[in-house]
Write a protein that binds this DNA or RNA. Structure first.
Lengths: 139, 139
DNA sequence: GTGTTTGCAAAGTGTTTGCAATTTA
DNA sequence: TAAATTGCAAACACTTTGCAAACAC
């Protein structure tokens, strides 16, 4: 698996959002943004890092996920009341959540025209559709 | 505030789902189902109980929420990745989630015809709409 | 009386934080 | 070298669990 992002680009992207390009942040940025969309938890990203031989603490993974989210590089996905998931796709879109495995997949936009999609992944049945309209007080 | 449910009815309803009508379960059932729809967390229900002079432990509140959910009397609402909310309305419907206060309100069904409701509560603005299509493996 | 349920306290899980050591600019 | 970042371990919030005492039937 080739990593197409040169250091300079990763550095530039981090600087662009006001974050110092430390070894840990660069490595995590590569894992997250180097190969298409990902859906991660702190734990899963930490494991990816370990497998990739990246020395980084779990605390730093948590901090980095928050910083990237605040910077708009990641978006939190709420599908489980006991774990936080993060999505590298920050565009407006929705998700399949596989209850059995805890995995998440983007719903292709052409399938979400009706709220309840009729075209589900193979061997999967609908558990339920959750729609949460999140509000905040006006300024 | 009058409690319209006679003991016999609460007992019958609990028995109907295979749960012994203990003092704690009856009292929690009254709190939950006695006065229209409620959206609770373990902590909020525990506080309601305390305010109402009901002696029940937090552990029992957790256990009871699970039992009621398994029995189909409650439904879990996933809006926060660190707390579990339960809704006494188990019919298909959706929610407003007030990020500032952590409160939940049902979305009146006539407002959810378009995915993004145009008619929001006063002084509230849209943070975002989360749609999660929850799937499980076929049998 | 027998099996179920409760309450407590301890343990568990995911997450955050204080702070000294390290790294970046 | 000044400020930001890291990693560790301790602290945290929420939730679950083991087990003896209390309760329901």
């Amino acid at each position: 698996m080739v990593d197409l992002q040169p250091d300079s680009e990763v550095i530039r992207n981090l600087r662009a959002v006001g974050l110092r390009p430390t070894r840990q942040r660069m490595a995590l940025a590569r894992l997250l943004f180097g190969h298409g969309n990902r859906h991660v938890t702190a734990e899963s990203l930490y494991e990816s890092a370990q497998r990739g031989g990246i020395r980084v603490s779990l605390a730093t993974v948590y901090n980095t996920l928050h910083q990237f989210t605040t910077a708009g590089l990641l978006r939190q996905v709420i599908v489980d009341s006991s774990r936080s998931y993060y999505d590298t796709n920050v565009d407006e879109h929705h998700h399949f959540y596989f209850e059995d495995t805890g995995e998440i997949a983007d719903i292709p936009s052409d399938r979400i025209n009706s709220i309840v999609p009729t075209d589900l992944p193979d061997n999967m049945e609908l558990s339920r559709v959750d729609i949460v309209v999140r509000l905040r007080g006006t300024a």
